[in-house]
Design a protein around this nucleic acid. Structure first.
Lengths: 216, 216
DNA sequence: TAAGTAACATACCAACCGGTATGCATGTGG
DNA sequence: CCACATGCATACCGGTTGGTATGTTACTTA
């Protein structure tokens, strides 16, 4: 009768499960996430879920790879990779986050950070998949800093690997604190300091060389 | 016969439950922590547990208040409060953590950070109790910075509240990243950058005034 | 058109969960 | 010495968990 190709239909229900699972995991964490809840919110049943995913863990990993990771790639990583002046792109993105995110955005915290804290010491597969995202984030940030060095916007003595690692870590730290306080003001204050840190990597303009700066 | 005062005995079993619960929660998180596991590791039974604690949540809150919080107070907060030069005390403590912590210390992550990420959006009581620790940590750090200002070791234009907030946030962020990588090297690299941030709050020695520095 | 498979729904399962009600010692105050 | 409370142990409970086995329907392919 209707049949917009049943193959496309199947992919659609898979996507529905994936999104519902992502939402439930975001709210409850992975371990506390209930398959029954996920199915109830979609109107589907266990037959559908276990047809598309072999286990709860596989579903969780699919959420990590296809929802969390994809979101990061689209919003931050790809723009940073393609940018001519990635340093500006990074700072601009931080500004947007500082400006746009409201209180309720921090009620549930950063999906990536939540999963990292919960799962990385509990399940090795999760740890690996999550680490791929963090590694990509860190690598892209490091490349942005290195490109910044070649453009004389970042001091040559800056350890770009360590700085990128710190930026990612502190960023997630800001999310965590804002989540506990459930306040956008906390996030803004915190991220503004991180922005300041990034700016402190720039060469000193006016006088001659000052400070040995970043470690070693 | 023996009876080293049964009242003291009762407090001892309470403490045993508390410590076992803290360990289990540290490994599995609070929600995934199994009361059966906790009791098995102590050799006690449910009768004992529910005699001393009315519920699992109450047990968790007791762990937060009497184990996690106490540990923080003793190791970091009290020394910082009593220090004449709190800035040096803070930096020295960071150095010790950078030096002494080994890989296996990051297998389970920071107990405080773990609970914050897991519980603050799930249970309001937890959020409040955890926030008390974070607030105390931030306040002590802020006071250290303010005292540093009065000693001309911190620039006058530094926003000590924001800086303290960021230090705490980034600190936990370093823990989180090190937990995911399960590597002390990650923690060292990351904390060294945070240390650098703290140092960047110091007045510029050689030349005249440089940079507007910290926000607003 | 017959056989087969993809895409689900339904019913069921053992295991585990936190919590409770009861039993039973061991002191302890009157 | 007795009533009573403290400090546990034992047994049990309903509810929920992830997972599975068995339909049933619709569509594809030969």
């Amino acid at each position: 009768m209707y049949s917009p190709t049943p193959l496309a239909m199947a992919d659609l229900t898979r996507e529905k499960i994936l999104q519902a699972a992502a939402a439930e995991i975001h709210r409850q964490g992975f371990q506390a996430a209930s398959i029954a809840h996920i199915l109830a919110s979609t109107g589907l049943t266990k037959g559908a879920l276990y047809h598309h995913f072999p286990s709860k863990q596989a579903l969780g990993l699919a959420v990590v790879d296809e929802v969390v990771r994809t979101g990061f790639e689209e919003r931050l990583l790809n723009p940073l990779r393609e940018a001519d002046e990635p340093l500006d792109t990074l700072l601009a993105y931080m500004d947007r986050r500082i400006r746009d995110l409201s209180d309720d955005a921090f009620e549930l915290g950063c999906p990536l950070n939540n999963l990292v804290q919960e799962m990385s010491s509990v399940d090795d597969e999760f740890k690996t998949h999550l680490d791929h995202i963090l590694q990509a984030w860190q690598a892209v940030t490091e490349q942005a800093l290195i490109k910044g060095q070649s453009q004389d916007r970042i001091r040559q003595d800056v350890d770009c690997e360590a700085a990128a690692l710190f930026i990612v870590s502190a960023w997630e730290g800001c999310w965590g604190m804002a989540k506990n306080r459930q306040s956008a003001r906390t996030f803004r204050l915190c991220m503004a300091q991180l922005r300041q840190f990034v700016l402190s990597l720039a060469p000193v303009m006016n006088s001659s060389r000052v400070q040995p700066a970043t470690r070693r």
